[in-house]
Amino acid sequence: MADATARSPNEADSAPYYVELRRLNFFYGEKQAIYDVSLGVPKNRVLALIGPSGCGKSTLIKAVNRISELTPGTRTEGDILVGGESILAANVNTIELRQRVGMVFQKPNPFPKSIYENVAYGLRIHGVRDKATLDGVVEWALRHSALWDEVKDRLKASALDLSGGQQQRLCIARALAVQPDVLLMDEPCSALDPIATGKIEDLIQTLREDYTILIVTHNMQQAARVSDHTALMWMGKLIEHNRTEEVFTNPREKITEDYITGRSG
């Protein structure tokens, strides 16, 4: 395998990658969904994945915490590194991996439990029973996801009573509670109104200081607003990967230019 990092078009930011995909191929049965994608994101940066529907963005992001392999008949080739270690190796514990690499899904998916129990869930399944620890982490996670002030008086209320935007921030809090260092966000705002979207985008800006973030988005403006780097996917292939400014102001590829200006996709 040739030096995959050197092939990256990301020359403008030379910081070492914290999350790195090396020549990744992904198959649903016989159908190939991702072709030979190599890209990465340095620590505490936000990488936006853009591209038309069905181009493999979500598949790609779900490969990073290996949640994609829950679908029967899938196959991953190539390598993915988080913090310099391969996560596809045979001895990798997916439980531990998914604790390190948190995920926020397209549709807010809080459990039908109380707000408190939603955030505490991750700690509980990892064996934390101490009430003081749980209380502390729940508050910290809710503050960190900018939800604390809105829910602090009704932590015992059902999470399903929250608005869509609040639910999504709750899901972020739930992911933060297990202390990950990478956050995967799969179109986290696609089911939200503009105000809720704005709040999540602000939140991503603050989370960036502590986490390495990969975000899939359909919204070009959102990619431009929240990300440091942007990668454009097209039919399972990586077309362009560069600093967000460069991608949006000075795209190298014709496809990128057409896509970001709305002429295709």
């Binding site: 915490n65 531990e96 998914r98 998916n109 459990f111 739930r174």
Partner: peptide, 13 residues
């Protein structure tokens, strides 16, 4: 499916 994914995503067995 989203409920299962949410739990798996937090590292549940």
């Amino acid at each position: 499916r989203s409920m299962r994914e949410a739990a798996y995503g937090l590292g549940a067995t």
